[in-house]
Simulated assay, not measured.
Amino acid sequence: MDSPESKAHKLSSEDKKLITAMYKRLDEERMWRLSMGTIVEKQMEKVAAMCNHEHLSHSLILDPQDNVWALVFTEKEIQEIKSHQAPKLKTMPDEMNEYIAKYKGLVELEAIEEVNAQHRFSRLKEPYLHWMSTSIAKVLDLLYYNYLGKERSESDLLKHVWTIIDCCFYHDTIDVFSGEQKSKSTNNRVNNDRSVAAQEPCQRRKVGSKTDLLFATDVVELGTAEAGKDTDINSTKMISESGFKTPKVLKDMLYHMVKETPAKL
């Protein structure tokens, strides 16, 4: 059962007062000023005041994919926000590029299978080449048996398709967990005010948000993702989970990382 946090609730007059007060407490000297002079937090405050139901702006989160920001930012400003300090993906090592190039131009499953069968890599000495090779073999199974040609549930996709991605983390310090995982970072936030009150029973521990995929080390959580079928991309569930719950969980993780390693802020 989803946490109530994953559903946007109607704001009360008290909620709106707290949101207004939160924005007023922000230090204007530390606000984000775009190249055109627009102050991001000031525009976020305008959107926060427009909404009658909970929105990411009430958690000081700006998702530039949300069309609502077109009400207060120009197209150029939104593009500047999207590209600001955007991470750059590393290029694949030469040996991985050389291996994948062996499949170039192949379209018949039998031809792909033949190349795949000719290459075997050490799990410990060549972990990523091993992952690529075994991943291609798993994809061949899906294609040979037309697994994706039939109606599949979200659980089916996590179990048989996304597991190919999961295996990439076997030889890494990052672990990936799937199947309605509870985020410790979110649990810590929602239970932050939990205490034993005098002459009152202890407050029940609240349950934080659950996610489909959770990426973590032994020390901190690093990321999360929601799985869903492309046919459900505009469904209420997907909008609620990927567009609302996930950014809030990511913010909780970021906050927890800052608390664990303040020197790296």
Rank of each mutant, 00 (worst) to 15 (best):
S6Q: 14
N146T: 15
H256I: 03
T231K: 11
D27L: 12
L124G: 10
E45G: 05
V219A: 12
D218Y: 04
H171F: 14
T224M: 10
L56Q: 01
T163G: 05
V139A: 13
L158T: 05
A198Y: 11
T134R: 15
W32P: 01
I81W: 01
D94R: 04
D141W: 12
L89A: 10
D2S: 11
T211A: 00
F169E: 06
R204C: 08
N146S: 13
E260C: 06
R123F: 09
I174K: 07
A21F: 10
L214R: 12
L250G: 02
M96K: 10
R189N: 02
N188W: 00
Y99H: 13
E180D: 15
H160V: 00
G37I: 03
F169C: 12
G223P: 15
N188L: 05
A227Q: 06
K264E: 03
V72T: 04
M44N: 03
K88Q: 09
D230R: 14
Q43G: 04
K259P: 03
Y255F: 09
T163L: 01
V196T: 15
N191V: 02
E226M: 05
V190D: 00
V107C: 11
E28I: 13
I136H: 12
I239W: 03
K251H: 05
D2V: 14
A263V: 10
E108Y: 11
E260N: 06
E221G: 02
K248P: 00
L254Y: 04
E126L: 02
I239R: 02
Y170A: 09
A111Q: 15
L148R: 06
E45C: 04
A101W: 06
E108V: 15
T261Y: 07
H55S: 04
R30V: 00
E110K: 04
K150Q: 15
D66P: 08
Q85T: 13
K102C: 09
M253F: 12
R120G: 11
A8L: 05
S240T: 12
L265D: 12
V220P: 07
E77M: 14
A49V: 08
G228I: 06
I81E: 01
P127K: 11
E80T: 09
F177A: 05
S57G: 10
Q203S: 02
E77H: 09
E80S: 10
E260R: 10
H160T: 06
S6I: 14
Y128E: 00
D66Q: 14
M96Y: 12
N188P: 01
M50T: 09
H84M: 04
W162I: 09
